[in-house]
């Protein structure tokens, strides 16, 4: 019995990942000629399979730069970052960062932010399911205590702030609208959430992502409004809340317990300042 023959998978992997290296020792084609092309099938399976996974994951980035450019860029990513688990839907977590530093794409400064948005869409697609708070329950909340209320957001919810109109870019590609020129003259803030089975991507009013992040951190609506207003003096609170309600981002909203002696006072009148 030849116990020495447990082969060196490390050497196999090194050759697999570096096309400049020859095929590893110890393998044969059937005819005794070099097995390079045969080994190249494995090389291609690894690389092309992962590039395909990125192309599925970032379809709008791919449309933006075209197939050839995207695949070449994805190839660079694959060679630097292999998946860390066999769950390919998690692959690409570093892709947006990679794109932001990718020299050949520097003339397309919005590309990395679109990649962030697409990554968030993919995360939301696979995120935990949870039933959003029904509108009736929201309407039944005591208005006078909303400023002090906190919220639990949907586990799929994610916001992305960009100096570029990423939601407009996303939307025109999703809807196959005609691609009339789009000016890069404003930023947009994206909200991604999957309240049931379809992923929603909505634009929040500027400052909205700060508002959502504050709520995510467990701050009250009042504090969240302050956070947004500090960034944008004319923060559109109504528009922001409307977008959040339409997107069904809230799982629950908790009003603070009534304070002593406050229960008989009029609305908005409980003191403590």
């Amino acid at each position: 019995m030849t116990m020495s023959a447990d082969f060196d998978q490390g050497a196999f992997v090194r050759a697999l990942l570096d096309p400049e290296l020859p095929a590893p020792n110890g393998i044969d084609a059937r005819h005794g000629f070099p097995p390079e092309r045969r080994f190249a099938v494995y090389r291609n399976n690894v690389c092309v399979g992962l590039v395909d996974a990125l192309a599925e994951r970032f379809p709008i980035c791919r449309q933006l730069v075209g197939d050839e450019f995207f695949r070449a860029m994805a190839r660079c990513y694959v060679r630097e970052f292999l998946p860390r688990t066999p769950m390919l839907f998690e692959y690409g977590d570093g892709f947006a960062t990679f794109v932001s530093k990718f020299e050949p794409a520097r003339e397309l400064p919005y590309l990395a932010d679109v990649a962030w948005l697409e990554y968030a869409v993919g995360q939301a697609y696979h995120a935990e399911d949870a039933a959003p708070l029904p509108m009736d329950a929201i309407r039944a909340l005591p208005p006078d205590r909303l400023a002090d209320a906190t919220a639990v957001l949907h586990p799929s919810a994610h916001v992305i702030t960009s100096k570029y109109p990423i939601v407009s870019i996303w939307r025109r590609h999703m809807s196959d609208e005609d691609l009339s020129p789009l000016e890069l003259d404003h930023g947009e803030e994206a909200l991604v959430v999957r309240p049931q089975l379809a992923v929603n991507v909505a634009a929040l009013p500027i400052g909205g992502s700060a508002f959502v992040r504050a709520l995510e951190d467990g701050r009250t609506f009042g504090t969240a409004m302050d956070a947004a207003t500090r960034l944008v003096a004319e923060f559109d609170l109504t528009g922001c809340l409307q977008a959040l309600l339409v997107a069904k981002v809230f799982l629950s909203i908790s009003v603070t317990p009534e304070r002593q002696n406050a229960s008989r006072r009029g609305p908005l009148d409980h003191s403590g300042a």
Binding site: R37, V41, R43, N44, N45, V48, G49, V121, H173, A198
Partner: peptide, 23 residues
């Protein structure tokens, strides 16, 4: 939803062939 997000293909089955160019 466009862009399927569910990674249809399994490993080891690409149509890429054996050309070194692909890598």
């Amino acid at each position: 939803l466009k862009g399927k997000n569910d990674c249809a293909a399994g490993p080891g089955t690409s149509c890429a062939g054996s050309s070194k160019m692909d890598y």
